[in-house]
Amino acid sequence: MPEPTAHHVGITVSDLDRAVAFYTDTFDLDVIAEFNVGGEAFGDAVDVDGATGSFAHLDAGGARIELVEYDPEATRGEQPELNRPGAVHVGLSVDDIDAFYGGLDDGVETLSRPRTTESGTRILFVRDPEGNLIEVLEP
């Protein structure tokens, strides 16, 4: 069997334009690709009859973040919590977490102010406009 390599981290959103604006404005990520996918093979692959997807790939310095808006959109479940099995988050590192925190727009929701963990890593969790969790860390 061929060895897998990481390609991207995917985040499903309800408003692709709003999500792209958040990730490019808040984290200064560059959009490296935008495309749409549909057709029978795509619907079969994602197990959603008649599905189409609008995608944006963002460069996160060695990692690719894929934002995707689906049609049809499923009903929203509970808001993701970190301690719920199956919860996911994206981790992005910064050189100065206090400066990053101080520069956040007032509308960006955070779980707390930056904190230093027992391991010495400084962390901060923010939510994107969809409620998805992003860990910002200063190693």
Rank of each mutant, 00 (worst) to 15 (best):
E130C: 04
A99H: 01
F55T: 13
R84P: 02
L67D: 08
N132I: 01
G39D: 06
Y23S: 07
G131M: 08
S119I: 08
A33V: 08
G53R: 10
V90N: 02
D47V: 13
F35E: 10
T24A: 07
I65G: 04
D30A: 10
D106L: 01
A21G: 07
F55C: 11
A60S: 06
G53A: 15
P139W: 08
D96Y: 05
Y70C: 04
E73W: 12
S119K: 12
Q79C: 08
F125D: 03
T24M: 00
P72Q: 13
L137A: 04
P139L: 04
G38K: 03
P4H: 10
E34I: 00
G91P: 02
G120E: 11
T12D: 08
D128A: 03
T75S: 15
I32Y: 07
V68N: 08
D44R: 15
E78I: 14
D96M: 07
T5K: 13
G107T: 10
P139C: 04
T5N: 11
P2R: 13
D105G: 06
L92Q: 01
E130K: 01
V136Q: 02
Y23F: 12
T12E: 06
D95T: 04
A33E: 14
E81W: 11
L58T: 11
V31H: 03
V68M: 15
G38H: 03
E66D: 12
E40C: 07
N83A: 14
F22G: 00
E130D: 15
V90M: 04
T12N: 06
G102Y: 03
E69M: 13
F35T: 11
G10I: 06
D95E: 13
G43S: 14
L16N: 10
V37C: 12
I134C: 01
V48C: 10
E109I: 02
T121I: 14
S14T: 10
R84F: 06
G107Q: 07
G10F: 06
S54Q: 14
R115D: 14
A56R: 06
P2L: 13
L133H: 00
D96L: 06
E130G: 05
I32A: 07
D128L: 01
R64C: 12
V31N: 05
R115I: 15
T12W: 05
E118W: 13
V20G: 09
A6D: 07
P129E: 04
L104K: 04
T110L: 04
E66A: 10
I11T: 03
L92I: 07
I123P: 02
I134V: 15
D59C: 03
T12P: 09
T121Q: 14
Y101A: 00
